[in-house]
């Protein structure tokens, strides 16, 4: 009966994932490998960026710098992703019964880790798929942006290369992301114990699910859990890059939602 409960928890979390994330790993992989039929627009230099921007946003404003255009695109996509992660969190059994202040804390610290996990599914070694715009931005082009903008995405590609070797599918990722959100050691939690109990159930469900879904990879849970520490590091570094951009660019405006997430974060 215990295993049946865990399997049912896994199903609930997976269904919440499918209901809330518009671009799943399965869909992203189909587009990236050309199985989906329609190919994305490839953004590999300034000219293709200008063409894509005028296609999606209307007239290209020559006054605006490519770096700011790219970063605003990135901010916009982040806010959308944060909304998706929040709706997903709200559907995790038990999350809604937590103190509202703890829900806020879990999201403040968890949304970026969740987001960079999901973005790994949209990345290959050559670039990242931005399917809301049906575009594929190359890694080489992102590297050519001036500093510190060139340092925004590159560490995420390095993480994705390592993370993607685990070959988790969407049903695994659903539980992995739920476990990231329900983390009992975020700073300032009022009832860490209650959250640890919820995370414990998710991790048990994840363990059982991996055993059934990947019977040939008995160490997969341990490997996945190690990646959680890498994600925390990735987010700390990301917050530093955002501060560097803020300091270096007068024209830069951070979205208010991202502002409140980064403020007093680490």
């Amino acid at each position: 009966p215990h295993e049946a409960n865990l399997a049912s928890l896994s199903r609930l979390v997976y269904s919440a994932y499918l209901n809330n994330f518009t671009l799943t790993k399965e869909k992203a992989r189909a587009i990236l490998t050309g199985r989906a039929g329609q190919s994305p627009v490839v953004i590999h230099d300034m000219e293709s960026l200008k063409n894509a921007e005028s296609l999606f946003l209307g007239k290209w404003n020559i006054e605006r710098e490519a770096e700011l255009v790219m970063f605003n695109r990135y901010q916009h996509r982040s806010v959308e992703a944060i909304c998706e992660v929040t709706e997903f969190a709200k559907s995790i059994p038990g999350f809604g019964s937590l103190d509202l202040n703890d829900q806020v804390t879990l999201l403040k610290y968890g949304v970026h880790e969740a987001m960079f996990t999901l973005w790994s599914a949209y990345m290959n070694k050559d670039g990242i798929l931005v399917a809301t715009n049906n575009s594929f931005v190359t890694r080489e082009f992102l590297k050519t942006l001036r500093k510190p903008y060139s340092s925004v995405i590159e560490p995420k590609f390095e993480f994705a290369a390592r993370f993607n070797t685990l070959e988790l599918d969407d049903s695994d990722l659903a539980l992995f992301v739920a476990a990231i959100i329900l983390c009992g050691d975020r700073p300032g939690l009022l009832d860490a114990h209650q959250i640890e109990e919820l995370q414990d159930s998710i991790l048990q469900a994840f363990h059982l699910h991996l055993r059934n879904n990947h019977p040939d990879a008995p160490r997969l849970l341990a490997h996945a859990l190690q990646k959680m520490a890498d994600l925390r590091q990735l987010v700390t570094e990301h917050a530093d890059v955002v501060v560097a951009i803020k300091q270096s660019d007068a024209a830069f405006a951070l979205h208010p939602l991202l502002q409140e997430i980064y403020e007093d974060m680490y």
């Binding site: 806010v79 944060i82 909304c83 929040t86 709706e87 709200k90 509202l100 202040n101 829900q103 806020v104 999201l107 403040k108 208010p256 939602l257 409140e260 997430i261 403020e263 007093d264």
Partner: peptide, 20 residues
């Protein structure tokens, strides 16, 4: 609480909230 008012709104009202 006041410092995280958009996150609060997201949790309570969803992403259709006008603040987002």
């Amino acid at each position: 609480t006041e410092r995280h008012k958009i996150l609060h709104k997201l949790l309570q009202d969803g992403s259709s909230s006008p603040d987002i």
